[in-house]
Design a protein around this nucleic acid. Structure first.
Lengths: 243, 243, 243, 243
DNA sequence: GATGAATGAGGATTCATTCAT
DNA sequence: AATGAATGAATCCTCATTCAT
């Protein structure tokens, strides 16, 4: 064992083949588990499935968060790449766009941890995959510029992905057609033949000037949600005897 | 507590009245807390805010789940009702539809527990509110039948609501315009001027016959999702050797 | 105990007699355990000995530290009080001083957690007991002012207590006479018949002016401890191949 | 296994030499780390700093304790030697004594592991350094016999060292003058001009007959530590009732 | 002989649920 | 009926020690 490699004096001993294997096993198991159960899983479940002890897991990823982050990094990257491949392959700009969403949604939207963090990751993209995803979308956006209705931004397309992602989660198992239909509908809403302007997005990142010819077709709520959710108080009701 | 009962002067036990009041207080507090923090909250937080003891809470709702369910029931119902009011009020069928989404999304989409469970609830609607929501949507669907593209179903509209609900959660706090834009886009995708047929939805619940004139514009994934998430095994890997 | 008082309508229900009992049991057990084993004990040991579950323990003391702090608070306070009683009782100022040390060292110096934290607590006295201890010492100092050599400060006496505390820990079990002898010696060193001035203490808190007539008898080290402890490097020696 | 035998020129295995070097590196690193952080350090920290792997460390020292013991052995020895050098160098017996304490305290009292174990080591001196330290002290004691108050023993001086050691630890960083003052005071207490006899030390090791002329000035505690710490039970309390 | 990866028994802390008062 | 104290299994993480390479 540990055959002395005469060729490389700089390389002392083996590069810890099995350590790498373990690390990979951990990430693999974590990927599966996180996909299935989201980030709330017990770390021990991951350790069990990867066939390593807790110590080993924590040696490679000192915090559960680190492992989660690594998995998300890989998954987002892989996601972005496969979506880009799909998108780039198509010649027709519109086909590229639809193909992108198909691929993106088909492959990853059932991944619970991905979906749990997609929104968050979009806001502060410290994950490379998110950046790549944006780039792909920007590209698609640029290529399809004539086919898209005026005013559609990268943020719109990204948000659509987030949004549909959840639709996929709901339906993919039993009614996969449903989200396909919704995708179809939404994409049609993006087509250039819709001349009604979109509501302005004040935020930065708007890279396509919306033309504001006609008033939005969408009526604003007259009554607003006074009945809405938290009429909370945060304060305990009454009492509070002891203490 | 301890409301004086006239019948029993020696025993000034509280009647059911304040049991009911307690129950309401619990539900009210739970509603607020669940809206803010989702179903993962500590039950104690609910007890604290409602001003009752844990025992009382558990007397009324033997399991946390029971309480959550009750809250969701009420909230979904309230949601459906306020959305219906909004929808019914409008004379223009399209305005009714857009108004419905506005109302529905503005009022409840930030309600974390609602959103966490909306998807689930749609699948197996043991919640009355979901049924009502479906009814409202069906109504809207019927009224706007000429304005909607052929083949759009109640399920489509419901799924759109789920989908946009998450978009709202992501953006409502910092970029509320974004989900308004997405809503606008999606609704435009539903308009009758889109003649391209939607992919068939084989599942039951389709209440509008899709006309299948032309092939879907959306390309289906060739094989794909092979790269998708769980290539899991659930079984622990073979162990190293130690010990 | 704590019979339900009918007289007080403001007091709803019992004042949780058993909760108080439990809390006391926890503190009592913790006191014993901390005295024996120091602050490194397993919390479960405390729970076990006090006869409560972990949850109960953590209900009363949300962090282990809180429990430790509470115990130290009580112990330091008790310590200060019993030492004060001892000190105040004596008529002779010198007897008061010696009595104080006797009492202080006899009662508590075997208390591991106390000793572990005594030094720390002296530096930032957020514990009331420490303040009281200082007050007692200041009083003793004032009373014995004529008997003490010039320049002796409260800090000196406190440090002597810390210092002897450890001597007690070492010897109290098998050779209790030893620390008594050392105490005797040290106290004699404090007597007024030593005219040689003490080295100045630059720090604030010096409340007695040292008269600097003659040079200190104690020679300063000529060579300095070059051979002393940490000739450390903090850096790993060589290597560091992988990563 | 497989120590490179000189007879085998093909095998250029490292000879024992670097095993020794490793061992030294480990001890050196351990010395530094133990001095800084005490015996509670993570063994890995020692391995890291010494530049060897865990395996190597554990080959040389099968238990953490073994390594600690070895370090303490060396450190105590070194301590004793440097203190002896200091002590022997001085011509004046009293200067030798004070110089010894200065040196001893300045050099090693901040050494956490040393101080953690000094007390223990004094009780059962299986460490050579302790014996040497005793010898040095005995010598100093003998030389200064006329300057020391009657009845002062080696054990007294050793205990004083222990005791002051802790004072140093507490004060050396921020108030180094404080322990110098305490040392000064204590040494003055040892001077021959104190004629009051010390309390008898019944234990073996007393090598100087105490003359018992007058009663001790130090009053003994009348009641003993009734208020003292562990009124423990070790047994779990009677349980509540639940479950 | 050396290396550092792997192990797994603890240890602190949380929280749904039960129970004495 | 109500209260909130008590419970303990579950969860994240650490570290002395062992073992394959």
């Amino acid at each position: 064992m540990a055959v002395a490699e005469p060729e490389s004096p700089t390389r002392r001993r083996a590069p810890r083949v099995d350590a790498i294997r373990n690390r990979e096993a951990i990430v693999e198991a974590a990927t599966a588990v996180l996909a299935e159960q989201g980030t709330a899983v017990d770390v021990r479940e991951i350790a069990r499935r990867s066939g390593v002890g807790m110590g080993t897991l924590y040696r490679h990823f000192p915090k559960k968060e680190d492992l989660v982050h690594e998995v998300l990094r890989q998954e987002f990257t892989g996601w972005a790449e496969s979506a880009r491949r799909e998108a780039i392959g198509a010649e027709d700009p519109w086909a590229a766009l639809t193909g992108f969403y198909q691929q993106a949604l088909t492959g990853y939207a059932r991944h619970r941890a991905i979906m749990e963090n997609f929104a968050l990751a979009c806001s502060s993209p410290d994950l490379d995959g998110i950046r790549q995803l944006r780039l792909v979308i920007e590209e698609l956006c640029a290529r399809a510029t004539d086919l898209l209705r005026p005013g559609v931004t990268t943020d719109d397309l990204l948000l659509l992905l987030v949004s549909l992602g959840h639709a996929v989660q709901v339906t993919d198992e039993h009614h996969p057609q449903r989200w396909h239909r919704l995708l179809h509908i939404s994409l049609d809403g993006l087509r250039a033949d819709h001349r009604s302007p979109l509501p302005a997005d004040a935020a930065p990142g708007t890279d396509r000037k919306p033309d504001s010819e006609s008033p939005p077709a969408v009526r604003r709520p007259s009554t607003q949600d006074s009945s809405a959710a938290p009429r909370s108080s945060h304060e305990p009701r009454r009492r509070r005897t002891n203490r």
